[in-house]
């Protein structure tokens, strides 16, 4: 297992994929945070929850998204390029390969989540202050955004590996993850009356809850953390079973 993990970490840093994802994430976090911070009218920034939803929470949302993409690519990239064959020849214990991908992706995703959360916190605070708006977050809110965001990213990376192993085809896997995280769940948790009770139990909502977003609608951070761990474990196990049972083309 240690050898498999070392190999997976090396794979992640021996192409430019992770660096590219990281750069895209950083750019997007800054862009979205600044755009919302500068563009929205001041009445959107009345309370702590409003400020987090409008500006600061984007660190977690985008950190989780890019973490999930990173995890998925670690699986689908190997299938796409055919390196899955030598990978499984060298280590025919496919569950250990998938597990190594989960841990390696979670480790790197933790870094993604920390950076995304810190960037959103820094850029958001600077932007609001520049507009003369009182920032309502205290140290605890900031800490939850950054640390909770890192936890959400790590767990979403595991979900990404599982989805990648189940879907196998890279484009549908990445599009599916992106659409789910940015669009589908927002519809289910958003304004449509009466389904918040179910919607908040979904994985992207759990990720947002871990970092302290929308406390009136979403679960408490600790509960959401447990829930997202369950999602991540389920996805990793399902992906692992799929990878072990299916033939490699």
């Amino acid at each position: 297992m240690k050898a498999a993990l070392r190999a997976e970490l090396f794979k992640q840093r021996s192409t430019r994929t992770v660096l590219g994802l990281f750069a895209a994430m950083v750019g997007l976090v800054l862009f979205v945070t600044l755009l919302h911070g500068l563009g929205l009218s001041a009445e959107n920034f009345d309370g702590t929850a409003e400020q987090i939803t409008a500006v600061f929470g984007w660190g977690e949302v985008l950190g989780a998204l890019f973490a999930a993409l990173l995890g998925a690519i670690s699986m689908t990239g190997e299938i796409r390029h055919g390196t899955i064959r030598p990978t499984f020849l060298v280590n025919p214990h496919r569950r250990s390969v998938v597990a190594a991908k989960v841990w390696a992706s979670m480790l790197i995703a933790t870094g993604f989540g920390l950076v995304a959360g810190a960037l959103a916190a820094g850029a958001g605070t600077a932007t609001l202050r520049a507009r003369g708006i009182d920032v309502r977050l205290d140290a605890g809110d900031y800490a939850l955004l950054v640390i909770g965001g890192a936890a959400a990213a790590a767990l979403w990376a595991a979900i990404g590996v599982g989805v990648g192993a189940l879907v196998r085809n890279q484009v549908p896997a990445l599009v599916g993850i992106t659409v789910w995280l940015l669009f589908v769940e927002n519809l289910l948790v958003g304004d449509i009356a009466g389904i918040d009770a179910v919607g908040r139990l979904l994985p992207a909502a759990a990720g947002r809850a871990i970092s302290g977003q929308a406390p009136e609608t979403l679960l408490a951070p600790a509960v959401a953390l447990v829930l997202l761990i369950l999602y991540a474990a389920a996805a990793a196990v399902a992906g692992s079973l799929a990878a072990s049972r299916r033939d490699v083309a």
């Binding site: 050898a3 070392r6 190999a7 090396f10 794979k11 021996s14 192409t15 280590n91």
Partner: peptide, 19 residues
């Protein structure tokens, strides 16, 4: 069966680490 963005030496190194 290679990742086009990885060097040949690194391709071998990744497999060597796993084995």
């Amino acid at each position: 069966d290679f990742d086009p963005g990885r060097s040949g030496g690194d391709h071998l190194r990744a497999l060597a680490l796993a084995a």
